[in-house]
Design a protein around this nucleic acid. Sequence first.
DNA 1: ATCCCGAGGG
DNA 2: CCCTCTGGAT
Length: 213
Amino acid sequence: MSAAQAGDFLRALAMHNPAPETELRYTTPFTLLVAVVLSAQTTDAAVNRCTPALFAAAPGPVEMAALGAEGIAPFIRTIGLWQGKAKNVAALCSLLVERHGGEVPTDRAALEALPGVGRKTANVVLNVAFGESTMAVDTHIFRLGNRTGLAPGRTPREVEDGLVRRCPAELLRDAHHWLILHGRYVCKARRPECWRCPAATHCNYGDKVAAPG
DNA sequence: ATCCCGAGGG
DNA sequence: CCCTCTGGAT
């Protein structure tokens, strides 16, 4: 699809943003970073259930590092991959203290050097906490970008670059979040529900999908 | 049963 | 490229 059409597509989705708060509920770079690291392969609800107690016990990287993996684990046993995440968060916080003066680094290379932080997580932090024009691409956004023609690409990185180029600047903040939700609940891997899609008029994929009935 | 709002490792 | 780690949602 054309760049103009892509802009209309994204504006239509943004207007019907199903989750206006999202990651923005984590108001500091540190809490955001930890919450996003915990989010892998789990739901927001599961993460949001355990983070209040975790951050009450360890408000900053110094306290979190002091807890260690053994101390962190009890707070996050209800979410997926908790063993690895407990180790990652503990190691990550030690590095924040030792190498970055207890601050979350603002550059991609330093972020991605932290345990448990890959390109997707780094992009979320750069975008939400530091206002960078990044797009965090997960499996949903990868599929959506290709299926709709919004940002086709053979690799997640190609889709990411296409989306950053085509997303209207004023929508870029936290755009990954409503795109992911749209991919999860409407533009699903199986049985996409195009009849519920607010951007359907800007996408030709719906021609291949029958309405229910 | 199957897939994930991933990352790290072989 | 493939696998594994985990609880939860469907």
